[in-house]
């Protein structure tokens, strides 16, 4: 196969993988809404879809991580959300993705710790949006959000680490 076609084929393959992963993200979002954690604290989700962004970041596909995360956020807002929920998801997604991209190279932390911090900053960013929408009252929810951001982020990181391990083997 000529090399030009090969690179085009690779591009298409990559695009397909990203599209597939976006679909997986949307489905995990739906499954998650069935096993809601909202009875513990309102508004709290595990954020399983973030494990896909996490895996992409740590397997080196940064472009893919941004593309998949952005399409997931836009699509889920279109399908299930509202402009307000879009603002919340965008802020959270951007914060956690930036955290992971920045800390990826720090040897002091593993995937779990970085994902946990990503979860914390995800929720902190959402809290900031909450303050913008409903005023300073939202700030009182911050400790709860930090705690659950950490726990859920660590869980997502653990899951991502398992997936990454299997990807290396395969």
């Amino acid at each position: 196969m000529p090399s030009e076609q090969g690179s085009a084929g690779n591009k298409v393959k990559k695009l397909c993988v990203w599209a597939l992963l976006t679909a997986v993200c949307l489905i995990t979002g739906y499954i998650e809404s069935l096993l809601s954690l909202a009875f513990i604290a309102p508004g709290v989700k595990i954020g399983l879809a973030n494990s896909i962004a996490c895996v992409l970041v740590f397997s080196g596909d940064i472009k893919g991580a941004v593309a998949v995360n952005l399409s997931r956020i836009l699509l889920s807002a279109l399908l299930f959300g509202s402009p307000v929920s879009l603002a919340f998801s965008l802020a959270g997604g951007a914060a956690s993705l930036c955290t992971m991209l920045l800390l990826k190279k720090v040897p002091f932390f593993s995937v779990i710790g970085i994902s946990a911090l990503g979860g914390v900053l995800h929720n902190a960013a959402q809290c900031a949006v909450g303050i913008a929408f409903i005023g300073m009252g939202a700030v009182y929810y911050l400790p709860v959000l930090i705690f659950f951001g950490m726990s859920c982020g660590a869980a997502v990181g653990f899951l991502s680490a398992l997936i990454l391990k299997r990807m290396k083997k395969g």
Binding site: V106, F109, S110, I112, G113, P143, I146, M150
Partner: peptide, 20 residues
């Protein structure tokens, strides 16, 4: 899980508790 992770998680917990 590295040592850094545990320290990080502990620091986050302390910050959340302090804020609360």
């Amino acid at each position: 899980m590295k040592k850094g992770d545990i320290i990080l998680l502990a620091v986050i917990c302390v910050i959340a508790a302090a804020l609360a």
